[in-house]
Design a protein around this nucleic acid. Structure first.
Length: 406
DNA sequence: TCTGGGGTCCTAGGACCC
DNA sequence: TCTGGGGTCCTAGGACCC
């Protein structure tokens, strides 16, 4: 972000709150006997099965090298299930993800955050940024302690907290002394705090960018802070400028509450890759049902329907079709998704997804039956006017047909 | 050990409009 | 007949985040 020379940027006081091993902490909340045990919460995991991936591993399990996103099969190699282990061997307890329960705990935390700060951006179920306005740096530590205490009291789980003048630094501060951490980085400490951090710590640097940075000789945030900006801009465009700013503690992002979603999607992986048309069709239909039900529950209309097809080894393909206007019509989503899928009818597939985008938010108040009926009628009119023809068209014809609506 | 699921943002080329 | 440049929408892919 450009700033006027000679004018200091407004000083922000930003707090990042990150629950420690959130899913595992929730499981322990329900079942205190899990305390102190190696505990692994798996996504797509079912009792006695080996598929799925690690969502959260407790610190006891991390001792054995088990980490997030690791396949359950590999985790099992490192730490077998308690029931399968002989008495003397090391073992862990495995649980499937129970999102509903975790959400309820997350809401308890959220309530604390909302009454603590005016602006809260919840980044995910277990993480949020708070804008602390003009809180004095001298009071930051006390503030952090009492926030942690309030979360513990209200939700029964432990959070790590970082307080700093920008979002990047606040996040790294909350991570610095995990678990049960509290780190305050004052404005004049930011540069030295960031300097030793690996480039991957910066927001927007993943494996690809990190490798490129490494080739250029940049390993730490300090390296980037001392680099020549134009060199970074040459290599990464505007993102290069951002990286430079971030590394210097000049991350200008502000805490904004989360807006409305831009897309909704459901996806799921096959246990083993498949070429079976029927299996693919069934999966697409199930995903369509999932995602359209979510949209309907939130009164969300969609204009674009897409699919995602992952072919082995890990080749991600997306296809999408846009409609003349926003609709809510699961049956139409289904037929579009299946048609998009037909391109991959004979391909081996390991994962499929259905996505709704170009969303609009239906704010009709449906308080009265009459209003509801009125809306139903107008809905049917707008959708049915093009739908029957639509279904029989080939892809090419439909493109022509659709563009004529515009 | 082959990588689960839900998202966001950016880029680039093509179609089309004025 | 050839000409320009700006704007918008669409699709597809890539990188990234939690």
């Amino acid at each position: 972000m450009a700033r006027l020379p000679g004018i200091d940027p407004p000083t922000q006081v930003i707090c990042h709150v990150d629950m420690d091993c959130f899913y595992a902490a929730c499981e322990r909340l329900r079942d205190p006997e899990l305390a102190g045990e190696p505990l692994i919460v798996g996504m797509g995991y079912e009792s006695d099965k080996t598929h799925g991936a690690v969502a959260t591993a407790s610190y006891e399990a991390r001792e054995y090298g088990i980490e997030s996103a690791m396949p359950i099969a590999e985790a099992l190699d490192r730490l077998p299930r308690r029931a399968d282990a002989d008495d003397t061997a090391e073992s862990a307890i495995y649980r499937p993800v129970d999102m509903e329960f975790y959400k309820s705990v997350s809401e308890d935390v959220r309530a604390v955050l909302d009454r603590t700060a005016q602006t809260v951006r919840q980044v995910s179920i277990d993480e949020a940024y708070l804008d602390l306005g003009d809180l004095s740096w001298d009071a930051a530590s006390t503030f952090g302690q009492s926030l942690k205490h309030d979360i513990e009291t209200a939700a029964g789980i432990c959070a790590s907290v970082g307080i700093a003048p920008d979002m990047t630094t606040a996040k790294l501060a909350s991570d610095a002394e995990k678990p049960d951490g509290l780190v305050v980085v004052k404005p004049d400490e930011v540069r030295s705090f960031l300097a030793p951090m690996a480039v991957e710590s910066l927001h927007g640097v993943g494996p690809v960018t990190a490798a490129k940075l490494s080739e250029m000789g940049f390993e730490t945030a300090g390296d980037i802070a001392n680099a020549n900006v134009s060199m970074l801009i040459n290599a990464f465009g505007e993102r290069g400028r951002d990286l430079y700013a971030q590394a210097r503690g000049e991350d200008s992002r502000t805490v904004e509450p989360k807006g409305r979603p831009k897309s909704l999607s459901s996806e799921s992986a096959f246990v083993a890759e498949t070429t079976d048309r029927e299996k693919k069709r069934e999966r697409i239909e199930a995903l369509t049902t999932e995602v359209t039900e979510r949209a309907a529950a939130r009164n969300i209309l969609y204009k674009t329907v897409g699919i995602k097809v992952v072919r082995p080894p890990f080749d991600v393909n997306t296809r999408a079709t846009s409609l003349p206007g926003p609709i809510e019509d699961p049956e139409l989503v289904r037929s579009i998704a299946l048609e998009l899928l037909s391109e991959f009818a004979d391909e081996p597939v390991r994962k499929l997804g259905v996505r709704l985008s170009n969303l609009s938010f239906d704010e009709r108040e449906q308080a009265t039956i009459e209003a509801w009926e009125r809306n139903e009628k107008s809905d049917n009119r707008s959708v049915n006017s093009f739908e029957p023809k639509f279904r029989e068209k080939t892809h090419g014809q439909r493109q022509t047909e659709l563009s004529r609506f515009e």
